[in-house]
Amino acid sequence: MGIRILNGGFLTTVQDMGRYGSQETGMAVSGVMDTRAAALADILVGNDENEAVLEVTMMGPIMEFTEDELIAVTGGDLGAKVDGNPLPRYEAVLIKAGQTVSFGGMYGGSRAYVAFAGGLDVPVVMGSRSTNLKAKIGGIEGRKLGAGDEIGFRSPKTWLPNMAARKLLLPELSSREHTLRVVMGPQDDCFTEEGISTFLGSAYTISNEYDRMGCRMEGPVIAHKNGGDIITDGISFGAVQVPSHGNPIVMMADHQTTGGYTKIACVISVDLPELAQCMPGHTVRFKKIGIEEAQELYCQWRDYLKQLEKELNCPAEPASELQAVGLAAAVNEDRRYWGDHGTYRVVVNGTEFLVELKREIEQFR
């Protein structure tokens, strides 16, 4: 079938890249907090990057697999294990039926992501499988996962092309100090020059009031010209609200669709994953950049994802006719066999195997 939840952990939900197209009705986008980690997890197991994953917050779940499946765990290091042994992160790993995956600590970052090859069998609600906890829709009955929940796999896989290459370098998550790049506006003209300088020149500490809706920070007061209230307008993921109390609040994945506080800036898309992995007590500084630079950084990230997906999913090319002639000649003249290297799918009695071949020389007797 899929997975059986034995313990749901602190906050484990089903999320994808979000529920777009319904904000005009008041429906939040939701989706994963760390879009970078979630996208990489999906690509590592051959999924579209918008496929639903499990978002694991701080203390992770315990889940038993009832069917063989390839998974990838990315994001924060929350002590992922399989049957009590360390489970590699940022790597496609085959989990067998009967094995148990658990999370046992917080060694860096605050959120981990688990992607399942072929996707989870979760209903699509308003174009997304994401869990909206406040509206109680999406995911599993619109709530966090708990003991006894079962989720099936839509199209489980035990092999993928280029398995040996489905491994990425682990990100550095040990820092407690972070610099987030921002594009100023849309209400930066509501702040004094001193207020702008304070915002860009001060360190802010992430408070305990940090959840999927927003990240409240504490530090030097950012001065307004005429208070922090405005006529309500739209809000985006990463918008930095500054109410009249003068401290910033960064809107996160479950942010409301509109709000009536001044927004001094917006954290750029490629830096939001770093904030998603922060913890209360970490310090943040804001750095101003132009919108053109922000767009260029985003385009570079998109290009990287496309290239990674292409490299991992490119099947091994069959030998050309010329290569085949050369192989035959080698066998006839030298009685030696040159095996073409690559990754191949082999089906034996209905069971699929992924075979990695390396170039070898074999002397015939």
Rank of each mutant, 00 (worst) to 15 (best):
G142P: 04
R216M: 01
L173K: 04
G152V: 01
D254G: 01
K144L: 09
E333N: 14
I71S: 00
P280D: 02
A328N: 15
T179P: 06
R166M: 07
T158L: 09
C215Y: 00
A164S: 15
A239G: 05
R285V: 10
Y298P: 00
M58K: 05
T232H: 05
G290H: 08
T66R: 10
E55N: 08
A253I: 00
L6R: 07
Q323D: 14
I196M: 15
N85G: 09
G9L: 05
C314K: 14
I291M: 13
M184T: 01
I206F: 02
G148F: 12
I62P: 02
E64L: 14
A92L: 06
L160P: 00
D42R: 01
Q295C: 11
E172R: 11
T158I: 13
A135D: 07
A38I: 06
F237S: 01
F65Q: 03
P273Y: 00
V347L: 10
K288G: 03
I230Y: 09
S236A: 15
Y337Q: 14
I206N: 00
L11P: 02
F353E: 13
I230M: 11
G2W: 07
E177L: 11
T13W: 05
R36K: 12
S130H: 02
A117D: 05
E311A: 14
M58W: 10
M184W: 06
P61H: 07
K310Y: 15
E150T: 13
L87F: 08
P86I: 06
G60D: 08
G260Y: 11
N47V: 08
V29D: 03
R176F: 07
L312V: 11
R4Y: 13
Y90V: 01
N132A: 05
M126V: 11
G152T: 02
A97R: 13
N47W: 07
D188Q: 10
E360A: 14
I140F: 10
L160H: 06
V101S: 04
C190L: 14
G146E: 15
R181Y: 08
E274S: 09
G31S: 09
G227S: 11
H255W: 02
Q23V: 13
V125K: 07
K358C: 14
E293L: 11
L169Y: 11
M217H: 02
E55G: 07
V240H: 03
D229K: 09
G246D: 04
N208D: 08
I230G: 05
V267I: 13
E67P: 01
E362R: 13
P248K: 00
R166F: 02
E91L: 02
G79S: 10
N208M: 02
C190P: 03
V348I: 15
A328I: 15
G105W: 08
H282V: 00
G281L: 02
S236T: 10
K167W: 10
V182R: 02
N47L: 09
I264F: 09
G109Q: 06
F10T: 12
P61Q: 08
F199N: 02
N162W: 06
F103Y: 12
R4F: 12
G138Y: 02
S110D: 03
K96I: 04
A223C: 06
Q99A: 11
